[in-house]
Design a protein around this nucleic acid. Structure first.
Length: 402
DNA sequence: TCTGGGGTCCTAGGACCC
DNA sequence: TCTGGGGTCCTAGGACCC
């Protein structure tokens, strides 16, 4: 009888958005390409009237003006120092000749479904981690030729289903599998076995642990902790003293490669939101009409999303970001879950009345949380809500403006 | 030339309840 | 007329991830 094994894979698509774009524009292969910004930078196509040959002209970063960040860069662009989340204008200074393409989420979602379906054919237990990543539980999947061969067959299946490459990390848990998938990108296949922790994981920066971000990394650096190995030797008590019990103990365990999280094959959404950053910062007084229109549009958008996805929610909130990048949120819980844009707008409008509107605003968002499936609303048992501002049927007051 | 949009989870204080 | 205490809900902010 074979010993029970725990085999977890983390699969990460290589430069996903950019790679999907290269499927349609193969002439860009080998060039620095970045994805980001709005539809204004769509390539212009021209058919020669005589030869009927199709030529496309692409926008470059040099001609880019406006707000926005890079969502994905090809490896050629990354070699020039451009990376995701970088402002477009900063990227333009580094790589003026890089081609810019607008984001096309519909296309990425389509290819996302394709690659996940291909993986599911081989290994049905997968956990969604967004559009371009999954964890795969391979513990029960037969691997007569070994797990490396099994992982390679998954990579092959993804490529034949989509034409796209991916990197896979294999380990005994999600934490190590995630680190492993990043070790040999692109087109990687990395196995982290029981004896590999000290040699392959400990030299890495602490930041590579999923859950240690820039703030935690900076605080660790203050303690002279920069690598995962240094974190492992830091001592539980010192970490608990600095970060609190939960986070300190978690960090210590993570540095020792310990992680007991399951692969979660199904989850329900907790919130649905829409937000937008304006082309220029808006004033609540001078741009009142524009702001009001945007606000209504966001509420309608969230309402549509709730309807389409089949959810209703009772915590309605707004988010504002001022010109100085300070962000505030306000929310309010109503008695009955809703998916009605007018109800959302009324509740969100009342939240808006509780924020300062002196500074100029660069972002406005609307969120609905505490979701339940829409078909469960009829049987929703209403725990008497405090602070309840649900408008009744008799409430004829017009919806407040922002 | 600053810094998107969609999410999740955690913390912490106050209200409220038993 | 100093000092309960545990549990849940609500709200605001923050860290982090893709």
């Amino acid at each position: 009888m074979p010993a029970p094994r725990n085999v977890i894979a983390h699969l990460d698509m290589d430069a996903f958005y950019a790679s999907v774009e290269l499927l349609r524009y193969p002439e860009l292969r080998g060039r620095a390409v970045v994805i980001g910004g709005g539809p204004a930078h769509r390539p212009v196509e021209r058919v020669d009237p005589v030869t009927h040959a199709l030529t496309r002209s692409f926008a470059t970063l040099a001609g880019y003006a406006g707000r926005g960040v890079i969502t994905t860069a090809t490896y050629e662009a990354r070699a020039l120092g451009v990376h995701s989340a970088m402002g477009m204008m900063k990227a333009a200074a580094l790589a003026p000749d890089a081609v810019v393409l607008p984001v096309d989420f519909d296309a990425y979602r389509h290819h996302s479904r394709l690659f996940k379906a291909a993986v599911r054919e081989i290994a049905p237990r997968i956990e969604d981690r967004g559009i371009d990543e999954i964890y795969i539980d391979l513990s029960e999947v037969p691997a007569p030729a070994g797990i490396r061969v099994l992982a390679q067959s998954i990579k092959d299946a993804v490529r034949s289903a989509t034409g796209l490459g991916c990197s896979i990390g294999l380990a005994a848990n999600k934490l190590l599998a995630k680190i492993a998938s990043d070790l040999d990108k692109p087109d990687g296949l990395t196995v982290i076995g029981d004896g590999d922790l000290e040699r392959r994981i400990w030299p890495l920066p602490a930041r590579r642990i999923n859950g240690i971000g820039p703030k935690s990394a900076a605080r660790l650096a203050e303690m002279q902790i920069r690598t995962i190995g240094e974190l492992a030797h830091a001592g539980r008590d010192a970490l608990v003293a600095r970060f609190g019990k939960a986070q300190g103990e978690w960090m210590h365990d993570a540095a020792h490669g310990r992680d007991t999280r399951e692969v979660v094959t199904h989850s329900e959404p907790k919130s649905i939101s829409r937000e937008t950053t304006f082309d220029r910062d808006l004033s609540a007084t001078r741009d009142r009409d524009a702001l009001s229109q945007i606000f209504t549009g966001l509420c309608n958008g969230v309402g549509e999303d709730l309807l389409r996805k089949g959810y209703a929610g009772r915590t309605i909130g707004v988010k504002l970001r001022y010109d100085n990048f300070v962000t505030v949120t306000r929310d309010r819980t109503i008695a009955m879950p809703t998916q009605d844009a007018a109800v959302i707008r009324r509740a969100a409008g009342s939240c808006l009345k509780r924020v300062a509107l002196e500074r100029r605003i660069r972002l406005l968002g609307v969120r609905v949380g505490a979701l339940i499936p829409a078909d469960a609303v009829a049987t929703f048992s209403n725990t008497p809500a405090r602070n309840d501002a649900t408008p009744s049927l008799f409430d004829t007051e017009p919806a407040p403006d922002p």
